[in-house]
């Protein structure tokens, strides 16, 4: 199942009329415990407003009068609502009950995938398709209007920000990256200069990072075939790849897990063809 085909269970921690509020430590413990497990939680109380309802199922938690969860129904019959009394439960027990409800409803399961993927800053993007052409994992595509689009975020390799180095406009962000501007910090003129330099580095590697990778991989293959000690061979392979990893900020694990050279070549050609088609579509529309 794709990460996109899932609905989210909306949890409401209800501390309004007809329910006894938790003490502030209790509210914090329950909220935190639910958030750590990936849920979206609305704390509903008498002060302030929250996001409106949509058709998402609701699970309402509260310390209700008499310790009994009331039967709740959406007056317009559009949203399924379930309630759960949490009187006397600690934060972990509450999270356990919510998790059971999530499972029962087949709602999105969280935490199995670390959200690492590119986010495009369309205020900077010129739609040049270099990122599409560069990525070997099919993360990018073009939308129906011919605009660059992150189509398969879960195919992205965790901690690899290499495509952001390739983007000439510093338009690719990884919000969980350690430093700016890749993390979303403001782009400065100096950053743009630096970004360009990074592309020059990949040019120094032979104009094409993947061509260089293929060459190294082929060389390594020859060496590995002569090498009887597997551990030594692995160490040699790691040494070869470290240099590339440093040049493009690509984690060594990503390079180590790349497919065989002929498959790299096939994917690189496929990506280039997709980028060329997208650019062609731009000029003909």
């Amino acid at each position: 199942m794709s990460i996109r085909d899932q609905s989210t269970l909306r949890v409401i921690l209800y501390e309004g009329a007809d329910a006894q509020p938790l003490d502030s430590g209790g509210t914090y413990a329950v909220m935190r415990s639910l958030l750590e497990r990936g849920f979206a939680v609305t704390r509903a109380s008498l002060g302030g407003s929250v996001a409106p309802a949509d058709r998402t199922e609701l699970l309402v938690l509260g310390r209700f009068a008499g310790g009994h969860a009331p039967r709740l129904e959406d007056a317009q019959g559009r949203v399924a609502v379930e309630s759960l009394d949490i009187t006397g439960l600690d934060a972990d027990a509450v999270a356990g009950r919510v998790e059971s409800q999530r499972e029962l409803r087949g709602a999105a399961r969280h935490g199995e995938w670390r959200p690492w993927f590119p986010v495009i800053d369309y205020d900077r993007c010129t739609n040049c398709m270099q990122c599409l052409s560069f990525c070997l994992f099919g993360v990018y595509g073009a939308d129906s209007a011919g605009r660059i689009d992150v189509q398969s975020p879960d195919q992205c390799k965790t901690n690899c920000p290499a495509c952001s180095r390739v983007c000439p406009e510093a338009a690719i962000m990884f919000p969980k990256y350690k430093a700016g501007p890749i993390n979303g910090d403001v782009v400065t003129a100096a950053d743009l200069g630096r970004e360009r330099m990074k592309v020059d580095i990949s040019a120094l590697l032979g104009g094409d990072v993947y061509a260089s990778l293929r060459q190294r991989s082929d060389d390594a293959k020859v060496r590995f075939s002569k090498e009887r000690d597997e551990k030594k061979a692995l160490a040699e392979r790691q040494k070869c790849l470290t240099k590339l990893a440093q040049a493009g900020d690509i984690p060594a694990e990503v390079l180590m897990s790349l497919p065989p050279p002929d498959e790299i070549l096939r994917r690189a050609q496929e990506a280039k063809a997709k980028a060329a088609a997208a650019l062609q579509a731009q000029t003909t529309t």
Partner: peptide, 16 residues
Amino acid sequence: GVAFDAVADLCEMAAR
């Protein structure tokens, strides 16, 4: 005591 919305991780939700 104010009402508010909280999410575990906006990045994960955006990816989905």
